[in-house]
């Protein structure tokens, strides 16, 4: 089966420093694909490249006369190469990124954050997703009028995922969703991610440093190191790999 989203020989340079080195990976429809790696392994750059934000960063850097960013390779989505497609167009096509550090709209209330997320959705879709989101994260229900900036980290992450869901993703990119959260929240979020995948049928690409709770729920995963994919396999293969064991499980 053809993957719905596939990166082929993707390379990203910041000036002469290589951030993504010849990465090829694929996300299959209806599956959870994981990307693991330490800090500076290139996870976030990869996410920005897939969602297209890097093109905007590149444009801004060029105007300012700053760093020269080069993006090479192919990104195939539903049979088309979208490596140079604008980020907002990619979102329209169904690739939605839920970014690292959440990037909640601080001055907007929870409800408004969700409504902004629903800009791409029709009225019916928005209403349906809203109900869904509130059953998935009951904690958000009582915070509807609270400003985004006054939420705790866990609540913000729930809101960020909900906001991304409001945009009706076909492929949901989750960039380090568990970063800096307590084990209790971690469990809520991992359950939610599984629910989004199994029940809503959304394809997920998830990147995480903290592999312990994510590794068991993925279908297939890649390990990044210094910008290159050094290892790949399904959930069990990765967990059985001695290097992964020592690096992520401390065994």
């Amino acid at each position: 089966m053809m993957p719905v989203l596939e990166a082929k020989d993707m390379m990203v340079f910041y000036e002469n420093a290589i951030a993504i080195n010849n990465v090829s990976l694929g996300c299959h429809r209806g599956r959870i694909t994981g990307i693991f790696g330490a800090n500076s392994a290139g996870k976030s750059t990869l996410m920005y490249t897939i969602s297209g934000i890097i093109l905007d960063v590149k444009k801004k850097e060029k105007m300012r006369g700053g760093e020269r960013i080069t993006v090479l390779g192919k990104l195939i989505y539903e049979g088309k190469n979208i490596i140079y497609m604008e980020p907002s167009m990619r979102a329209r096509e169904g690739i939605i990124l839920c970014p690292e550090r959440r990037r909640i709209f601080n001055e907007s209330s929870v409800m408004e954050n969700l409504r902004i997320g629903g800009i791409l959705a029709t009225r019916d879709q928005a209403k349906k997703t809203l109900d869904r989101v509130f059953t998935m994260f009951p904690a958000l229900k009582n915070l509807k009028r609270r400003e985004g900036g006054f939420l705790s980290g866990g609540e913000q992450q729930m809101l960020a995922i909900s906001r991304a869901l409001m945009a009706q993703p076909k492929v949901l990119l989750l960039d380090e969703p568990l970063l800096g959260l307590s084990p209790a929240i971690e469990e809520v979020l991992t359950d939610a991610i599984v629910e989004i995948n199994r029940e809503m049928g959304i394809t997920i690409l998830i990147s995480e440093q903290y592999a312990r709770s994510i590794l068991p729920i993925i279908h297939y995963g890649y390990v990044l190191e210094n910008g290159g994919a050094v290892l790949e396999g399904n959930s069990q293969e990765l967990m059985d790999n001695p290097d992964v064991k020592s690096a992520y499980f401390g065994i």
């Binding site: 297209g52 980020p87 907002s88 990124l97 709209f105």
Partner: peptide, 27 residues
């Protein structure tokens, strides 16, 4: 700015341009 889609996208871009782009707002 608070209740229409266009107004909401204005508010979104004003607060965090990249986050708004990820949700499909053309900056």
């Amino acid at each position: 700015t608070h209740y229409t889609k266009l107004g909401l996208s204005l508010r979104a871009i004003a607060q965090d341009e990249h986050a708004a782009m990820m949700l499909g707002v053309n900056s």
